[in-house]
């Protein structure tokens, strides 16, 4: 399954719904499908808010069945990750009430739930691949 949508948050909602309602993700059990939605939402929001922070573009997603789960490839033509490396994604520390973290959860959620995560900068494109376990 292949899908292309625009890099804005409303289009991300539509793209997520399309990906979850058909193809390999639709066939997943509820818990795995919920995890898939969490991970994909974080990946797409990240592309919109960081790779395409200063301009609009398109996000292309391919889904394929794989022995370990659904293999996802996300391609965009936005800015590369700093140092061409994915964020470490450490879980923000929970401190005092008035210092609770309001962000920084995204890459932790992604890294904790996927397998075979990899990133390449290919010319002017970012290519992120990972496997969503069944």
């Amino acid at each position: 399954m292949e899908l292309v949508f625009d890099s804005n948050l409303d289009a991300v909602r539509g793209g997520l719904a399309d990906l979850l309602d058909s193809g390999p993700l639709c066939a997943m059990e509820a818990d795995a499908r919920g995890t898939a939605e969490i991970v994909l939402a974080e990946v797409f929001n990240n592309v919109v808010e960081h790779a395409y922070a200063t301009r609009q573009g398109r996000i292309k997603v391919c889904l394929k069945n794989h022995p370990d789960g659904v293999l996802v490839t996300v391609i965009d033509s936005g800015s590369p990750f700093p140092q061409q490396q994915l964020p470490q994604g450490l879980l923000p520390e929970i401190n005092a009430w008035d210092d609770l973290p309001e962000g920084g959860f995204g890459w932790y959620l992604i890294r904790s739930q996927v397998r075979h995560l990899s990133y390449q900068r290919e010319g002017k494109h970012n290519r992120l691949t990972f496997c969503l376990p069944y």
Binding site: E42, W97, P101, G103
Partner: peptide, 20 residues
Amino acid sequence: AFLDSSGLGAVVAVMKLLGP
């Protein structure tokens, strides 16, 4: 049915807005 990390951050922000 669904909340992402931005939604989570907003819930945490509301908790802080309410005060100690």
